[in-house]
Design a protein around this nucleic acid. Sequence first.
DNA 1: AGCGTGTAGGCACTTACATCA
DNA 2: GATGATGTAAGTGCCTACACG
Length: 325
Amino acid sequence: MQITDNREQILLGVQRLRAMASSSHPTSPTSLGIELSIATQKSELPFTDHQQTAMEVSMESSPVQLELLPLRPSCQKAVANAGLNLWGLGFNACGIDVNQLPSTSASEEEEEAQAEAPTLQLSVLAMGKRDLIVRERGMDVVEHERAFLEVSSRVSDEEESGSARKKLRLSKEQSALLEESFKEHSTLNPKQKSALAKQLNLRPRQVEVWFQNRRARTKLKQTEVDCELLKRCCESLTEENRRLQKEVAELRALKVGAPFVISHDFYMPAATLTMCPSCERLAPHGSPTAIPPTPTASGSTLSFASKPQHFPLTLPSQSQPSAAC
DNA sequence: AGCGTGTAGGCACTTACATCA
DNA sequence: GATGATGTAAGTGCCTACACG
């Protein structure tokens, strides 16, 4: 469920949790398993300690254990803000003390009860400036979330060990497999995405991003090729234009001495015309079939006597042409 | 059937980081 | 070792198609 009003939805979610805690398991409210995960993209403002800590939160008469799973370290300010807003606006309003550390001294009975407790798992996905998304487990997001959490745990370990945040670089094997897959299909359906992610030990989101970037690279390359082609085409046309300009100038010069004009009844693209070597009049390149068959009734047809084959010229009525050149 | 709304996926653009010369 | 160029993983916003009430 995508939501536009974060506060309302968070409050709603918490109210539902509260209802479950009080109605379903009134005797063991603390055993209600709630998993709140905040999936983040990147962060410049890392969360403070409590954000990676399982917490005991109290909600009026029904204390609820709120487990805040480790955040991906590469989370961003926007997400951090969203998370902080979450606490400030949502949970604090419900009386949840997020600063309390969780009770780690649960008895075996309590743990057992907790295992049997209904787990309404509430995922709050904070996506930058985007709306918060609240989902209940059991939807299609589960697999993705699980995969995410696995990775986030791993990265969290790295962070804990003190190493700086590092950008993930795919291994050669991973890239090769992705390339193979891309050759087969440039887009993936959710099933393919999940399968591939599992195979590569990546999150589906990473596979998705890789395919998006790969498509973008392909398109960019194709654009470059097209651009180069157009550039050459442009150069060729420029050269052709230059040549034709020259030809036009020559024809104009010829026209001064020759009374004949080419009838406009013919469609004769200029680029297909050349000089007749014998008479120095225009002749088409290639097959004469490119020439419209009949001249106008008012004109007469001229044929060049010599090879190559000549094309008909329509003569203006006022001029008297010779039978052949 | 038409309409409004929520959702998912894709794309364009951008940022941030890794790598290399 | 510092630095700029380049490649690429990932973030963000927008758009569109589709499902559903």
